[in-house]
Design a protein around this nucleic acid. Structure first.
Length: 156
DNA sequence: TAGGCCATCTGGTCCT
DNA sequence: AGGACCAGATGGCCTA
């Protein structure tokens, strides 16, 4: 059982309904008690606004679903709530940003080093240990794949 | 059964 | 004036 929320339109009429649609109809009934054309138009506008709001929220939920698909979910069989999805997205973006910044720092260090080597030893930098395949030499790749949800801090 | 999450309705506010 | 956005209220569903 749900009771109509008190509002300026129906203030204190105390009509009782069961479901959302029933509530809506009942509400319309309450509103249209006077049955004036103006009230009828107001009720129509309200219903249209409700439909728009429903569509808007559906769009929002679609966006949340898309976000859930690109955000890590480590073994979570239950889908993330909206709040968790946002927190996870935030943490994920921050983690990726950190990784990118560190990778850039390392690559610029290497660049500086190679220029230095080139100046003194021409081709010797080709044998520099940093030339190993990225997959096993890059510490960041390892960090990405050892990433666990509990490592994400809830941002305040 | 309580608590969390969600969908929906609603009125207010801001924008076009 | 009408639409978009927002926040509050409410009830349903699900899980521990």
């Amino acid at each position: 059982m749900k009771t109509c929320k008190a509002s300026p339109l129906e203030n204190g009429t105390g009509c009782v309904v069961r479901s959302s649609s029933e509530r809506m109809e009942s509400r319309a009934g309450c509103v249209l008690k006077g049955s004036s054309e103006r009230m009828e138009n107001a009720a129509k506008r309200r219903l249209a606004a409700n439909a728009r709001e429903r569509r808007r929220m559906q769009g929002l939920n679609t966006a949340f679903d898309r976000l859930r698909k690109v955000v890590p979910q480590w073994g979570q069989d239950k889908k993330l709530s909206k709040y968790e999805t946002l927190q996870m997205a935030l943490s994920y973006i921050m983690a990726l940003t950190r990784i990118l910044a560190e990778a850039e720092r390392v690559s610029s260090e290497r660049e500086g080093l190679s220029l230095h080597c080139e100046h003194f030893h021409g081709d010797s930098y080709h044998h520099y240990p940093a030339q190993k395949p990225a997959a096993d030499s890059d510490p960041y790749a390892h960090r990405v794949f050892s990433y666990h949800p509990e490592h994400f801090q809830i941002a305040n």
